[in-house]
Amino acid sequence: MVLSRNLKNAVIAFLVPLPSIIFYLSFLKHYDSAIATTTASSYDQLYSWCYHHPLLLANALFFFNVNVLFWIIGQFQGSHWLIDPYWTVIPVMLVHYYASHPLTQFDWWRSWIVVTLTWVWSLRLTHNYFRRERWQWGAREDWRFSEMSQQYGKQWWWISLFAVYVSQQVFLIALSLPLYIVHSVNKPLSIWDFVAIVICVCGIVIAYFADTQLYDFMIRNDKLKDLGKPMMPVLDSGLWYYSRHPNYFGEQLWWWGLALFSWSLGYGWTFVGALVNTLCLAYVTRLVEERMLRKEWRAESFRMYQKTTSVWVPWLKSYPCAAKYKKNA
């Protein structure tokens, strides 16, 4: 049963991006004749529009392929799991789309650096996703979606289109704007590009070690639970000693570092994507901590953790914490 579901979801995950990929490859094959034709057919007009509006095309493909198709699949499966693994894949697809569009122009070194960094970020996040999900496809959906489905009840079927998918389009397209700018401006590398590289790499490394430490902590707790022993209520070692959410901090460094690439090219307004994502993550942080406090066996320890430890930015404890965290009996 589990193997069959895993295989079915894996097949779905590999097939769902095909409509966008096939359409885009067709556009690349025919756009030159479409823009040169004076008496254009409807297809030529469509390809001509795609040629002149690369950013709008990216949004159109996202809307029809992700918002609509993913949402329909979610209705049939009763789970909106599909958007989670694709959060890690879509930026990679976007960076190659922007780099291959006929109107593109860019510095080869900057493009190569940004594409490579995007792949490294994606592989890290994809690995963390499947490691957390025990290497299964679609075993569960994001807990926030599950809570919202209970909150909205029968209305969730249509609300989910906006809450799960349209909102993701706003975030992913906005966050990926620097990928578009990098492939729209041909200027040589500057010192700011190297600063951006350092920030992006630091973000990826911090997020990797934070997620690995969290994963190991959860595995240890699962083993303690199976043995009937008290579980550890709070992870307070490694990077988590200095920050309550070092994984979020690392992820934010990545997106702000990426935005610095476009800022160095004269497009500082693209910081809006990273800013909106930071504000959203601040809200998610509050939800996560409220969820932690709802668990009585760890509530007291977590309150102490909140009082002594920085929220995001790794920092020293506010005062020496001599109290031992209570363990679940």
Score class of each variant (00 low, 15 high):
301 S>M: 08
199 I>E: 02
258 L>Q: 09
212 T>R: 15
224 L>E: 10
307 K>W: 05
63 F>T: 09
230 P>Y: 03
241 Y>L: 07
157 W>D: 02
231 M>Q: 15
327 K>G: 00
83 I>P: 04
257 G>D: 06
78 G>M: 02
173 I>W: 13
108 W>R: 15
214 L>M: 14
187 K>T: 07
260 L>H: 09
180 Y>S: 05
296 E>Q: 13
18 L>T: 11
203 G>R: 08
42 S>W: 08
303 R>L: 15
217 F>M: 00
229 K>F: 01
87 W>C: 07
172 L>M: 13
36 A>F: 02
140 R>Y: 04
202 C>L: 13
276 V>E: 02
98 Y>E: 06
297 W>E: 12
38 T>H: 12
173 I>M: 12
181 I>T: 12
124 R>G: 11
23 F>C: 11
166 V>C: 11
309 T>E: 03
24 Y>P: 04
15 L>E: 01
39 T>G: 13
88 T>F: 15
58 A>T: 10
299 A>M: 05
42 S>T: 12
62 F>S: 07
147 E>L: 12
126 T>D: 07
229 K>L: 15
251 E>G: 11
301 S>N: 07
327 K>Y: 06
29 K>I: 01
32 D>F: 10
35 I>G: 08
248 Y>I: 04
48 S>W: 02
278 T>Q: 02
162 F>N: 02
192 W>P: 01
274 A>G: 15
183 H>P: 00
63 F>C: 10
98 Y>K: 05
193 D>L: 05
264 S>E: 07
132 R>S: 13
312 W>M: 05
220 R>N: 08
122 S>D: 03
95 V>I: 15
167 S>D: 01
36 A>Y: 06
92 V>Y: 00
102 P>E: 14
8 K>I: 13
278 T>W: 03
248 Y>F: 14
28 L>N: 10
135 W>P: 04
214 L>Q: 13
233 P>Y: 00
298 R>T: 05
285 T>S: 12
38 T>E: 13
305 Y>P: 13
175 L>Y: 07
91 P>N: 04
168 Q>A: 09
189 L>V: 10
156 W>F: 15
296 E>T: 14
278 T>Y: 03
314 P>N: 01
101 H>W: 08
205 V>P: 04
163 A>H: 08
99 A>F: 06
142 D>Q: 03
311 V>H: 04
263 W>E: 00
105 Q>V: 15
59 N>Q: 11
275 L>M: 12
252 Q>W: 06
151 Q>D: 07
125 L>M: 11
224 L>N: 03
228 G>C: 07
142 D>Y: 05
18 L>C: 10
75 Q>M: 13
13 A>P: 00
287 L>F: 02
111 S>T: 12
154 K>Q: 12
132 R>E: 11
255 W>I: 01
117 L>S: 07
274 A>E: 08
202 C>W: 10
187 K>N: 09
255 W>P: 02
252 Q>M: 12
164 V>I: 11
240 W>K: 01
257 G>Y: 02
39 T>H: 15
97 Y>I: 06
21 I>R: 09
255 W>E: 00
127 H>V: 14
124 R>A: 04
77 Q>W: 00
149 S>K: 15
180 Y>E: 06
307 K>R: 13
268 G>Q: 05
79 S>P: 03
141 E>K: 07
164 V>N: 01
24 Y>W: 09
206 I>F: 10
313 V>H: 00
239 L>N: 01
259 A>G: 13
222 D>K: 14
93 M>I: 14
47 Y>P: 01
314 P>H: 05
6 N>P: 00
274 A>H: 11
112 W>Y: 10
